[in-house]
Design a protein around this nucleic acid. Sequence first.
DNA 1: TCGGAAGTGAGAACACCACTCTCCCATTTC
DNA 2: GAAATGGGAGAGTGGTGTTCTCACTTCCGA
Lengths: 229, 229
Amino acid sequence: MDSESVEAPATGDAKEPAWRQRAVSRSLNAARSRAEQRVQRFLDAAFELIDEKGTTDFTIQEVIDRSKQSLRGFYQYFHGKDELLLALFEDSMLESAIDLREAVAEETEPLARLRACAIRLHEWCEPADSTRKRGAHNRRPISEFSVQLAVAHPERVKAAIEPVSRLLLELVGEAATAKTISVADTRQAAALVQQIVMYSWFGNRLISDPKMRLTAEQTWEFCLRGLGA
Amino acid sequence: MDSESVEAPATGDAKEPAWRQRAVSRSLNAARSRAEQRVQRFLDAAFELIDEKGTTDFTIQEVIDRSKQSLRGFYQYFHGKDELLLALFEDSMLESAIDLREAVAEETEPLARLRACAIRLHEWCEPADSTRKRGAHNRRPISEFSVQLAVAHPERVKAAIEPVSRLLLELVGEAATAKTISVADTRQAAALVQQIVMYSWFGNRLISDPKMRLTAEQTWEFCLRGLGA
DNA sequence: TCGGAAGTGAGAACACCACTCTCCCATTTC
DNA sequence: GAAATGGGAGAGTGGTGTTCTCACTTCCGA
């Protein structure tokens, strides 16, 4: 945890996730694809464990056993457990961003696009079992752990969320230029929407009665007015 | 962590914090005041350590040494480290609520009262060193840890926040009946305000540039519009 | 004053887990 | 064929929360 300067990804293609580049770059001399496969096996094993246990409280040993790899191999690709969780989180966010862009593409009006993004993002971050697609991973434990990561490694988390942040910023910008909302600063407005939508699950945790919990729609309504629509 | 049913505080006076009753009730037969003193020494020691280290990553041993008490005594009053942190959090929230009510009392207009509460609450939850009173404890580490507690013990955290929640609900209710805001459900509106204000520090963590971070005023502005003022 | 019960202190011991290190074997490379 | 590199297996280390043991003190009723 000392001066861990980010290694420059000299040969990376820009579409590659950042953490993947970082993890793989350590063994760049060897076959790159093989290394990526190994990394992916760790990730798959961790996802499975999270799905089964419903929490991120798995042990490294379990990941090793599940992935049929060695402890040594694990620490060759990940500096520690946090980095593995960070990778999972980054993976999740990347997948979310792709899905969100699909949802947004179905709308044309700026406000409708923003709304679609917010609603879908809410579903991603507070996955009810009913809305979760079959075969998809359970994102809730990762969502929950992300707050701890945000305290310990804010820069990393910020970078991981970036694809979603960028999309939200674009949409808020669109809506602002179309005059359908009126905000002083699009960046701050986007940041607020992001936080409210992504972490409303947190507030809901503190409400006992399920009937009283905030839905995606209600959260969006609040944001909508906050944006001065 | 098995079936830990909350013991009914049969003889408690209602102004006593819940956790204190719980911790003390285990040795109710003995002198109550002495037990409370001992509990308080643990709390003081923990607060000191948090202030010095700027984090909740102290060890139980450090609390023992600092408070000049025994490990056994610690586990006699607290079921574990989480319960100690919970107690600190509950203490903080209680103190906040008192301070917030003072701030609110200086205003008469419903909306001004709500605003005063929101601004002050924001200062409590994201304590800049400049606004922190001399001699007061550093609340940020506890704020940060509270998100973990909320994941692990939502009911406890909910109970701890309750004094603040109640105040917010009252104020939102006042403003709603005065027609200065228009919300469908006061409970949900209050919950939203609470979450946005109390945890905006979290979103700010993900913003590198200090100039871009959301201030109490800006957060309040957003809430204000969200409330349909 | 005596004696037992409860309370308390000191710290050893245990459990768990992230992380490191060493050994050894397989595959590749020259 | 020898050397080097990579990787698997697993013992070992360190830190920390938690429990347990035992001896000492205090309190209270007989």
